[in-house]
Design a protein around this nucleic acid. Structure first.
Lengths: 130, 130
DNA sequence: CTTGCCCTTCCAGCAACTAGAAGCCTATAT
DNA sequence: ATATAGGCTTCTAGTTGCTGGAAGGGCAAG
């Protein structure tokens, strides 16, 4: 099938599929006689795998590793789990950071009356954070 | 003062200060006779303002707007609050997204025994998400 | 006078795409 | 047969927010 159909079935934009190919994340597909990329169902399967992995926030590099493990029938699930665990830790870290930001920002916003007057605790907080 | 000292006092890397100048976020400072950038205390103050704003996750563009408002003594605090409120909403949205990811990923990780065997619910979940 | 650190500029690269240009290929409508 | 619309190809360049490095000049101390 053409890249347009592969795009539809995988849920990835055609541009992104080509990009993944360029950067080596996915293997170059077969080519039809007219030079068009020709994707198999297996190819599409892998594209979907990548889409879901990216959707869970794995980096492209991590997706590459996950895809290798996915294709390796002799893999050790511990290897997969290690990658996922590491990613989970990073997500937790990020959530914590964002919650900190949110808390600070929330305080500032709550203290600003937000009217036509110029005095503003938000700007003061940004200038001289406590 | 030289950029090194401004960097120390503002907490921003010298490279970043030059970058902010290049992109127009901060105005070009005075120049000493030898051609070196020459920062005033006011300049440093603004650099710190930007650092704190960025630290709260505002985009450079938003920082630019906040800085303008900071410098405008006739501002309306409502304008500041609108920017901050919007950013707060985006942070909330992002936290929610991350918590969703976290939850899905946590399930997958918890169901994977993570040993030497190849069968792995994480990979299965990525291939065929429910 | 040389060593070493500061400063200057400019160019390249990171992640992960996304947009656009220029040019074929193909299917359909007339 | 031909015009038109869309899909496909490649390539380049832009996005965000820096960061690193190269090549060169300034300046104080030993």
């Amino acid at each position: 099938m053409n890249i347009g159909e592969a795009s539809k079935q995988s849920g990835l934009p055609a541009k992104t599929i080509r990009y993944y190919e360029d950067t080596g994340l996915i293997a170059p597909p077969a080519r039809a006689e007219n030079g068009y990329r020709d994707y198999s169902d297996t190819d599409v399967h892998k594209l979907r795998f990548v889409r879901h992995s990216r959707g869970l926030g794995f980096s492209v590099e991590e997706c590459s590793q996950l895809l290798s493990l996915y294709e390796d029938k002799d893999r050790q699930s511990a290897d997969v789990k290690a990658i996922a665990q590491k990613h989970l830790t990073e997500i937790d870290e990020k959530i914590r950071e964002l919650q900190d930001l949110r808390s600070t920002l929330h305080h500032l916003v709550n203290n600003c009356h937000g009217d036509g007057r110029p005095d503003c605790p938000i700007l003061e907080g940004l200038a001289n954070p406590s």
